[in-house]
């Protein structure tokens, strides 16, 4: 196992973030912009999960849930970090409600202007 595996997953994650940023910056379609926001949201939650992952020296890593088969010192040694998972769990649901808000805004804009095109919406004031 080389050194590169110690941070290469983070680099892929940042590339996913960059794709979302590109969609927000370049695309003119409102739905494409919403998709970009969702991509950025997915990349961020993936990054936090990657940061919290742990591979113990011996044995396999385990989910942070105490079971009858796995408890005590063995559990403390093998479990992954629960804090980023707890933060991401709420953030996923918040992302869904924010996406719902954005979709509702796009639908209202489409009702008023008849298009998803942002440049056209800017021209048709009123």
């Amino acid at each position: 196992m080389g050194m590169i595996h110690e941070f290469f997953p983070y680099v892929l994650c940042v590339l996913l973030f960059a794709v979302g940023l590109y969609a927000i910056a370049v695309k003119k379609n409102l739905i494409k912009i919403i998709i970009g926001v969702m991509l950025i949201h997915n990349a961020t939650s993936l990054f936090l999960v990657l940061v919290g992952y742990r591979m113990p020296e011996t044995g396999e890593s385990a989910a942070p849930i105490i079971t009858r088969a796995l408890s005590g010192e063995e559990f403390f040694r093998q479990s992954v970090d629960p804090v980023p998972q707890a933060l991401v769990l709420t953030a996923i649901v918040i992302g869904l409600s924010v996406v719902a808000l954005m979709v509702v805004m796009a639908v209202r804009l489409h009702e008023k202007y008849g298009t998803f095109d942002l440049t056209r919406i800017r021209k048709l004031r009123g």
Partner: peptide, 15 residues
């Protein structure tokens, strides 16, 4: 922190 080796300063206490 390198992948698969988190700090777990607070996580260890929570666990």
């Amino acid at each position: 922190v390198p992948f698969a080796k988190p700090l777990m300063t607070m996580g260890e206490a929570y666990l």
